[in-house]
């Protein structure tokens, strides 16, 4: 009886593992289980803040392009954000393609920003990549900035007519969303 007691005592265990006892192991595993448990309880509480299923369900939109004449731009809503759709003139396309891209902050050719065969359509999220304002430049009467594209009035970012950042604090070009041409005059954004 007394012998058995001795082998089970933490002291004897400790003698084997250089100061590490069975108790230390229990502490560690208990803490690890506790952390995993607390994390799995916390996750739903945090994740509920992410977009809900109905919000995600609204994540694509279709736009009919036929009423937009050359040189005209429209703004549509997609995911609560404005999307700029511009029917570009030949001159604008030429200008956009003549730019030396090595001089750009966010190096991107105009070809990368439009879809092949649909070069006259420029589709971009109308949100300044600095802090999320809507740049001016959709209307003929708007201030279009120094590069004759879009100008963000909040912190003074200038975009060219391909929506590329040229001057000001914004780090990136206006984002081109995912979109597909369902027909020549109908696109689906998202």
């Amino acid at each position: 009886m007394s012998v058995k007691k001795e082998t089970n005592s933490p002291k004897t265990e400790g003698a084997h593992g250089e100061g590490e006892t069975r108790r230390d192991f229990l502490y560690l595993t208990a803490a690890a289980f506790g952390a995993v448990g607390a994390g799995s309880v916390a996750w739903p509480l945090i994740d509920q803040m992410n977009p809900a299923a109905d919000t995600l369900a609204l994540s694509s939109t279709e736009v009919d392009l036929s009423p937009i004449v050359e040189g005209q731009a429209i703004t549509v809503m997609w995911r609560g954000k404005p999307v700029f759709i511009r029917h570009r003139t030949e001159k604008e396309i030429e200008e956009a393609r003549a730019v030396d891209i090595t001089a750009l902050r966010d190096k991107q050719t105009d070809e990368d920003r439009v879809q092949e065969g649909h070069e006259k359509w420029l589709v971009m999220v109308g949100i300044c990549t600095h802090l999320g304002c809507v740049p001016a430049g959709q209307k003929d009467t708007d201030v279009k900035g120094e590069y004759d594209g879009w100008f963000c009035p909040c912190h003074g970012s200038h975009y060219d007519n391909s929506g590329r950042i040229r001057k000001g604090p914004a780090p990136k070009n206006l984002e081109v969303p995912e979109y597909t041409f369902l027909s020549d005059t109908l696109i689906k954004i998202g």
Partner: peptide, 11 residues
């Protein structure tokens, strides 16, 4: 995560 959507909105 802060927005609960793709822009500042109802959530």
């Amino acid at each position: 995560l802060l927005w609960g959507g793709f822009s500042v909105d109802n959530p």
